[in-house]
């Protein structure tokens, strides 16, 4: 079973990449390519959500791909959030401490709650200004 990717842009500031299958040294290139196309479509300061619901397996090559996405988003003032990591993925993340725990969500509700709170924070900051 190889990698399958599907992306959607729900709003200008937010894009979601659904990753499924196996992300390893063989397939990570596909993800990198897909992201190169998707990233410019996200506004600066936006949010990239990577949905790992279908990802069964990740190796260090896949970790590097995630790192690249996060770097690119960070450079543009945005953030990358990972959602629905499966057991193997979570285990690998844990071992190498790949991403901050605050950016990994096990459900859509958690993610939405987080995004809402972020939005409120931004609004409050604007009010302060």
């Amino acid at each position: 079973m190889t990698l399958s990717l599907r992306s959607e842009i729900s709003e200008p500031g937010r894009a979601t990449m659904h990753v499924a299958g196996r992300l390893d040294a063989m397939t990570f290139g596909e993800l990198d390519q897909a992201m190169q196309q998707l990233l410019p479509k996200v506004a600066d300061g936006g949010t990239m959500v990577v949905d790992l619901a279908g990802l069964e397996y990740v190796s260090s090559a896949g970790l590097r791909s995630f790192a690249k996405i996060r770097k690119a988003m960070k450079a543009r003032g945005g953030q990358t959030l990972l959602i629905h990591p499966q057991p193997q993925v979570r285990k690998v993340f844990d071992i190498v401490k790949a991403v901050p725990l605050s950016e990994v969500f096990s459900s859509t509700q958690e993610l939405d709650a987080y995004l809402d709170s972020m939005q409120r924070k931004v609004l409050e900051e604007n009010d302060d200004l």
Binding site: S59, S60, L63, R64, A67, I95, V96, K97, A98, V99
Partner: peptide, 25 residues
Amino acid sequence: PPELTGDIADREDVGGLGVHLVRTL
């Protein structure tokens, strides 16, 4: 062993992670 900062995106070089996984597993 690689220095694990909690965010591999912080690292310039993301190598050494694979060997670390091997040793752990």
